[in-house]
Simulated scan of single mutants.
Amino acid sequence: MDLLEAIILGLIQGLTEFLPVSSSGHLELAKFIMGDSALPEESLTYTVVLHFATALSTLLIFRKEVIQVFRGLFQGKINQEFMFSLKIMISMLPAVCVGLVFEEVLASFFGGKILLVGLMLLITSVLLLLADRSKTTSKDVSMFGALVIGLSQAIAMLPGISRSGATISTSVLLGVDRNKAAKFSFLMVVPLILGKIAKDILGGDIHFSSEEIIPMGAGFIAAFIAGLMACQWMIALVKKSRLIYFSVYCSVVGLVAVGFTIFT
């Protein structure tokens, strides 16, 4: 993996982690276009580095909300902060269970499954269209809502299903305020990313040589900066009900991916 490939993949991860177009799906498409050599044996390590970069950008933007979550967990009082923290924990359960039980099955969906990516992008497009047309309300995320949103996050482990798109769309369809839906969507994934990183490190799956430090560092910086911009942009777009643009985009990319697979 050369420096340019590392930066391109970093930008893709940083932008698509927050924009509702599926980061995993776009990384699969990018690797397919650039060839399997784009991410050879260090694929897992580089993926972890990119996810860590986007997790840090989320922590920076939502630092006040993150502090609120930790206060709620450790202050020992049943108040608004504790309830918000509890909702975050509940939303994580489906993805944790699916990830632990079906880890090998999920892994089989990656690695050049372009038809699957295309079909899942079309599903993402429909979800975004439904959310874009839903009514604006001022409701907060409920306990039951947190579980349902968590289920949508678990489904979004498939490449091509946008995690942010699925969780934000589910929240909006449940009647949650759009701004609260976006913040909850971005916050609920941070513990999962950090937990996955810790699991891979402790499992001994992370390894790289000294010559890979510069490309990985460049990719990390690209993903971090792109993530900062995309996260703030996405919040503004959700407030203004502009999800239709991403719905159209996912439709086009999905149809191209499906068409390419069928006719080549």
Results as ranks from 00 to 15, higher is better:
Leu11Glu: 09
Leu11Asn: 03
Ile12Ser: 03
Gln13Arg: 12
Gln13Tyr: 02
Leu15Ala: 09
Leu15Gly: 00
Thr16Asp: 00
Pro20Lys: 05
Val21Met: 07
Ser22Glu: 06
Ser22Trp: 01
Ser24Trp: 04
His26Tyr: 05
Glu28Gln: 15
Glu28Val: 10
Ala30Leu: 08
Lys31Trp: 07
Phe32Met: 10
Phe32Cys: 03
Phe32His: 13
Ile33His: 05
Asp36Lys: 10
Asp36Cys: 03
Ser37Val: 08
Leu39Ala: 09
Pro40Phe: 09
Glu41Phe: 13
Ser43Met: 09
Ser43Tyr: 12
Leu44His: 09
Thr45Glu: 04
Tyr46Trp: 05
Val48Cys: 00
His51Cys: 01
His51Gly: 02
Thr54Ser: 10
Thr54Lys: 08
Ala55Met: 12
Leu56Pro: 02
Leu56Asp: 01
Leu56Ala: 12
Ser57Pro: 06
Ser57Gly: 09
Ser57Arg: 06
Thr58His: 03
Leu60Ala: 11
Phe62Gln: 00
Lys64Ser: 13
Val66Met: 13
Gln68Thr: 14
Arg71Asn: 15
Arg71Cys: 10
Gly72Tyr: 04
Gly72Cys: 03
Gly72Ile: 13
Leu73Trp: 14
Leu73Lys: 04
Leu73Ile: 14
Gln75Gly: 02
Gly76Gln: 06
Asn79Asp: 15
Asn79Tyr: 02
Gln80Arg: 14
Glu81His: 08
Phe82Cys: 10
Met83Trp: 09
Leu86Ile: 10
Lys87Ser: 01
Lys87Ala: 04
Ile90Val: 14
Leu93Asp: 08
Pro94Arg: 01
Pro94Phe: 04
Ala95Pro: 04
Val96Lys: 00
Leu100Arg: 10
Phe102Glu: 06
Phe102Ser: 07
Glu103Cys: 07
Glu104Arg: 15
Glu104Phe: 08
Val105Ala: 14
Leu106Pro: 04
Ala107Arg: 15
Phe110Trp: 11
Phe110Lys: 08
Phe110Ser: 10
Gly111Asn: 15
Lys113Ser: 10
Ile114Arg: 06
Gly118Phe: 00
Gly118Arg: 02
Leu122Lys: 01
Leu122Met: 12
Thr124Cys: 03
Val126Glu: 07
Val126Cys: 04
